[in-house]
């Protein structure tokens, strides 16, 4: 305090220097912790759920014309440390040599969601739960289902000859 007498006006006193230094160091520490902390809080909002993808079904050449080709796949949804996997399946029906002349049904029954099976002798998709019956064109032939089988409308054949469908979580 005694040196205040002989310090010039432009010089900063020891007390003020400490105050300013404390403020700056404190601010730097606050920013160094504070900014990452905000990013840490907001992080989940910036993550993409990845709820859609191209899913390979099988070799297109293996699928015979007029014969339903059964396939299934599993989607895994990861939320933080929690993983939920859901199974999906369906049937590919080629109508002619033209690759675009193909119908892909979802094997989930439109009634209550059981998985339908192709019965060759009945020439129909039969649901084991309530005897729902669908024709090879997906139309309801009998039983409780309210509408035809759902379709995967987006599909493509890759250069390697693999049929892929575009899956989108609904």
């Amino acid at each position: 305090m005694s040196d205040e007498g002989h310090t010039g006006r432009n010089e900063i006193s020891r007390r003020d220097f400490i105050k300013v230094t404390t403020g700056i160091v404190g601010g730097v520490i606050g920013l160094a912790v504070g900014v990452p902390a905000i990013a840490y809080l907001l992080d989940p909002a910036f993550k993409s759920g990845a709820k859609e993808a191209w899913i390979p079904i099988g070799k297109f050449a293996d699928m015979q014309i007029g014969q339903p080709y059964a396939f299934s796949f599993t989607r895994v949804q990861v939320n933080g440390w929690e993983r939920t996997s859901t199974s999906h399946g369906g049937f590919v029906i080629r109508k002619s040599d033209n690759p675009t002349d193909t119908v892909i049904f979802n094997s989930r029954c439109t009634h209550l969601g059981c998985t339908v099976n192709w019965k060759a002798d009945a020439q129909a998709f039969i649901c084991p739960c309530h005897d729902g019956k669908f024709g090879i064109n997906g139309k309801v032939l009998g039983g409780p289902p309210p509408r035809p089988l759902d379709q995967f409308t987006d599909f493509r054949v890759t250069q390697d000859g693999v049929l892929e469908i575009y899956y989108k979580e609904s």
């Binding site: 902390a37 990013a39 989940p44 440390w81």
Partner: peptide, 9 residues
């Protein structure tokens, strides 16, 4: 591993 700056906090 999954959260931004989680390792820091």
């Amino acid at each position: 591993n999954g959260v931004a700056f989680g390792w820091l906090i």
